[in-house]
């Protein structure tokens, strides 16, 4: 009820978020769920409507407002006709003077494609009938982003802060505005540094949850993924004389950890600028407490921040491995 929203005076559920007001007469916990309980005794999530067609077979509810695809007005051209007959999704029905289609249109229902935007309009009223991206100020999608992005206005390619190769596109190797924490204990190795010839990436496995600090306390999850390991290709394993389950040491400019080798053909060496570059895969679910313990992949990762949302760059950095233990 709180999530769905209601009119404050009589406590009646609102039909969807379009009914929410900014004058205090309605209340809603989270607008994207508005419409999931559209009326007394109704629960969209319980719905099993086989008649929904191919876009949502027997699926109860999708937010916001039971739309399966956001900005779906973009599937029609400015005049409201499907771009492609084969891929048509929502379109303007001139005879009924409303938007229609397979999905619920993510657009004001009766705003005709030729409606001009209102200069002084508030919210979507400022958009014209051909501006599908309703949550953007101008209703348009941007390739050229003159404001908002710290590293706009156009997308480009930089190498990760640590990379085994030179940037093949520009002379500039990596992002000039990524935040680095230049300290003695957080060095970044130079491109092609022979001490760290391999790529490393980190990821999760299904059985553990993020850093594992919660899931490592469940015996049922711990037994499924009990030990820190590094995935390496059979080619690299042969080169280094490493057998499956052997102990190995993985090192980067910042530290070294020990774990088991998991030799698998799922890892494939890259051909980069004509050179064969090996990649090492590291799950990051282990730590020093729990039913199962193990080394932390994050000990190897460079501390850094991506300039827009401050995510650290742990999907690509350089490392080395050797057989043995610390």
């Amino acid at each position: 009820m709180e999530m769905n929203g209601y009119t404050v005076r009589d406590g009646k559920q609102v039909a969807d978020f379009a009914a929410l007001k900014d004058d205090g007469s309605t209340a809603c916990g989270v607008w994207i769920y508005s419409g999931v309980f559209p009326g007394e005794g109704q629960n969209m999530a319980r719905r099993r409507n086989k008649g929904d067609g191919w876009i949502s077979p027997e699926w109860g509810f999708a937010w916001p407002g039971n739309r399966r695809m956001l900005y779906n007005r973009a599937s029609a051209d400015p005049q409201g006709r499907p771009w492609s007959e084969r891929k048509k999704y929502v379109w303007w029905d001139a005879a009924q003077h409303k938007w229609t289609g397979y999905d619920r249109p993510d657009f004001p229902d009766t705003k005709a494609p030729d409606t001009p935007g209102q200069e002084e309009g508030v919210g979507v009223d400022a958009h014209s009938g051909s501006d599908p991206f309703t949550l953007k100020a101008d209703g348009r999608a941007w390739l050229f982003a003159p404001s908002g992005l710290k590293d706009g206005p156009l997308p480009t390619h930089y190498e990760p802060l640590e990379s085994p190769v030179k940037n093949p596109v520009y002379r500039r190797q990596d992002s000039p505005i990524a935040k680095r924490f230049s300290r003695k204990d957080n060095p970044i190795s130079a491109p092609g540094d022979p001490r760290f010839p391999y790529l490393a990436t980190t990821y999760r496995v299904t059985e553990q949850y993020t850093s594992g600090s919660m899931s490592r306390w469940s015996s049922w999850l711990s037994e499924l993924m009990p030990e820190m390991f590094a995935e390496i290709s059979p080619e690299l394993a042969a080169e280094k004389g490493i057998k499956n389950r052997d102990w190995i040491v993985v090192s980067s400019a910042r530290g070294e950890i020990e774990c088991r080798a998991l030799v698998t053909r799922r890892l494939r060496p890259f051909q980069l600028n004509g050179a064969l570059i090996h990649e090492i895969g590291l799950p990051y679910h282990w730590g020093y407490k729990g039913l199962v313990k193990g080394a932390m992949a994050n000990d190897l990762v460079p501390l850094s921040e991506e300039p827009n949302v401050y995510i650290q760059e742990d999907k690509a950095f350089t490392c080395n491995i050797r057989k043995g233990r610390l």
Binding site: S222, E223, L224
Partner: peptide
């Protein structure tokens, strides 16, 4: 996991098998 939980079966041990993701 659902089976172990419903039937309250203990874990069998914590060892990496090296056989793909089956431990």
């Amino acid at each position: 996991v659902a089976c172990k939980q419903w039937n309250q079966l203990p874990a069998d041990g914590n060892e990496l098998s090296g056989n793909s993701y089956d431990n």
